[in-house]
Design a protein around this nucleic acid. Sequence first.
DNA 1: TCTTGACTTCGAGTATACTCTAACATCTAT
DNA 2: ATAGATGTTAGAGTATACTCGAAGTCAAGA
Lengths: 158, 158
Amino acid sequence: MEKYYTIGDVAARTGISAHTLRYYDKEGLLSFVKRSESGTRLFTKEDFEPLYTITVLKRSGMPIRKIREFMSLYLQGNDTIHERYVMFNEQRESLLEQIGELEDMLKIVDYKCWYFQEAEKRGDINYYKKLPEQEVDQRIIEFNKIVDDFREGVAKED
Amino acid sequence: MEKYYTIGDVAARTGISAHTLRYYDKEGLLSFVKRSESGTRLFTKEDFEPLYTITVLKRSGMPIRKIREFMSLYLQGNDTIHERYVMFNEQRESLLEQIGELEDMLKIVDYKCWYFQEAEKRGDINYYKKLPEQEVDQRIIEFNKIVDDFREGVAKED
DNA sequence: TCTTGACTTCGAGTATACTCTAACATCTAT
DNA sequence: ATAGATGTTAGAGTATACTCGAAGTCAAGA
């Protein structure tokens, strides 16, 4: 006899609310979950692995409809190993892109933190404009170049 | 006499659609933009810097309402340098967290890519279950531990 | 002058992912 | 046996960020 987990059990253990789990089911992500005669969802020990995979794909930024595709392949078993590999590989690329984008933003935000500290010391957000050109910090000149490129409509790597 | 850019010019240069620019204006992000007598928005060269800042904050994951707060401080000039510094510093923290989260997901997705390749070679998604325990790769054992923790409802660092 | 294209506002529509409510069924412990 | 907790469904509501359409205004060139 197998031990079953109700939707409430699963919610408490995984931190995914029962509402959300039902929503995922409705969206076709939880087709692997058994039901009792009366319709209650019966989660097994084994169901936690695909459930975990769903959370990983979600936290990686994969939309529900694509997770549904993945779960549909999962249900088909050994015949779809390659397709599922391809999907994970694509998600890997997507993650690298997302991380790259955020790291680019981090560089600019780091600059802004530095710049606002300098501006705060001098009590003037445009202090550098009153400085002789050779005294202006290189970081400011480079940032202004970026803004100029933005204004010129240079092709960007989005 | 100053050169002005219309909303169409700005859209073409920045890649932000005129629709979206008007939406941002309606949401209070573009209060710094002048208007002609007849109501047409007149963007100046200087307006591209706050516009660029808006895109950076957006791409960093900041919601519109918080960008509005920032732009409200921007309009108040030198008196709000410190508050703006604090906001950028918080955004820096947020970016580090987001990058950390994605890097955690990348580790798991990397593992999945490896695992699916192994499974594909053997034509069996559960090949390791038929192996003697000491022949099971350590990576698989570690991943299964993570899934077990997930099932046990261990406190997670979300 | 008239046409054309770009501008304006307002408000409705779309997409995504929940989040909640209502009405009802079922399970469990006293 | 009955109360109360927990389960079920369908469908409505929320939040966010656009995205589009309609109806009208305005400025410049043929």
